[in-house]
Design a binder for these strands. Structure first.
Lengths: 145, 145
DNA sequence: CACAATTCCCCACTACTCCCCAAAATAAGG
DNA sequence: CCTTATTTTGGGGAGTAGTGGGGAATTGTG
């Protein structure tokens, strides 16, 4: 499980280091490979390969000949891109994903349980402000059994 | 499993390169051979030979004497064409398939689990727009257990 | 049998990706 | 506080991937 936040930089080639503290939580089965895709909000989702394969397993159970299922498969896979850590523990982020998340020089790396999220720090700040409710109020609502 | 999208070009002879990242996921049993046919939507489906053989196995299970089954078998096989990668990792796409998918110069190559899809980029864009629902909504609907 | 059209094999150019080396910065330990 | 180890950042260069086209071989047609 990933947790914590880190502010790192994206270099001129579009590479981002995966923080050592997050790397510790990546299982060996992932083989240093990560799958990136667009998040449902304006960020990039990064899954270790083994976690991503669980998503693909679910997709395989769908009937691709059903119009709705087929479309969902295409939507989610369209932006999926995989890459392996280089010898300096970095991954190369496709330009299209960086644009989607409006990430330029600075990147906010967020540990989010089974995945890692990449944000433009300012976009994340805005995102937090969007809801008028406080942390306490949201907690009370979401964490009620 | 294939994933990701790539925008490549079709040359004057109707050849398309298979992206290296997709080639990695083709098993050795496929023998560099691919079977192409029309997709159920306006695209071209490209299967590695070993995957295609599983589809043929399914077709064999159908009852060819049932009018509907027979028709489906004829429709899918009518447009099936196989080809082997050339030394530059390209396959030659029959003109009839290119016309069905309205592909001219540019082609959008989509990794879609067990198959690869070829689209006219504009047709794909239209296809995504067709449903008013957002990615988030479809995800919630389809992935609900 | 000759011609036309298509397919296939080869070579070549360009651009990008990946791998390696290395400096700077941060953390850890005595 | 200083030394050592690890982590993050940066960039050069070899190799690979994508694109385009010439010409031989094959196929089909008149």
């Amino acid at each position: 499980m990933f947790r914590g936040q880190f502010t790192y930089s994206v270099d001129s080639k579009g590479r981002v280091s995966i923080p050592a503290k997050l790397r510790k939580h990546v299982s060996a089965e992932a083989n240093d490979t990560f799958v990136m895709t667009i998040g449902t909000v304006n960020c990039i989702d990064v899954y270790p390969l083994d976690q991503w394969q669980q998503i693909e397993a679910k997709l395989l159970e769908l009937n691709a000949y059903q119009p709705k299922d087929g479309k969902f498969i295409r939507m989610i896979l369209q932006n999926a891109s995989d890459d392996t850590l280089d010898s300096q523990s970095r991954i190369l982020i496709p330009q299209s994903l960086l644009q989607h998340a409006k990430i330029e020089k600075e990147v906010l790396i967020l540990g989010a349980l089974k995945k890692i999220e990449l944000w433009n720090p300012k976009v994340f700040e805005e995102y937090l402000k969007q809801t008028p409710e406080t942390y306490e109020q949201i907690a009370a609502e979401v964490m009620a059994q």
